[in-house]
């Protein structure tokens, strides 16, 4: 039981590190949001659930914290992405298509 929880926690911490690395390395704010959302959501969830597996009497409360993170982290990152889209942060040079202007005017053809 202790070993299984340790392995789950270890995978979670590696994903947390990858999230930090992605926020540092990727070129513009939208790509950083991708790394910052996905890696930290799964990383934090696995770390917390792993602690719950290692200490079985804590399991239900850690599950509650994990589900809370799984529900709220995409929402807060979506709010940040929408704010940077509305305030006009440009995309990086590698980008191939940008349809946000059509979207604001309501043209969806």
């Amino acid at each position: 039981m202790h070993l299984a929880g340790g392995i789950v926690t270890g995978i979670g911490t590696i994903f947390l590190f990858l999230g930090g690395l992605g926020v540092f390395r990727l070129p513009d704010v939208y790509n950083r949001l991708q790394a910052g959302t996905k890696c930290t959501t799964l990383g934090a969830f696995l770390t917390i659930i792993g602690v719950g597996i290692m200490e079985p009497s804590w399991f239900w409360k850690t599950l509650l914290i994990g589900i809370f993170i799984l529900l709220t982290n995409p929402i807060s990152n979506h709010a940040l992405g929408r704010a940077s889209c509305k305030s006009g942060v440009p995309l990086c040079k590698k980008s191939v298509v940008n349809k946000s202007k059509d979207f604001c005017k309501g043209e969806t053809k």
């Binding site: 990858l18 992605g22 390395r25 513009d28 939208y30 890696c39 995309l91 590698k94």
Partner: peptide
């Protein structure tokens, strides 16, 4: 995402 971050050339092709 981990593959794209760890790859030295970062094979991304972003767009909206």
């Amino acid at each position: 995402v981990a593959y794209r971050i760890l790859h030295p050339k970062m094979p991304i092709k972003p767009g909206i």
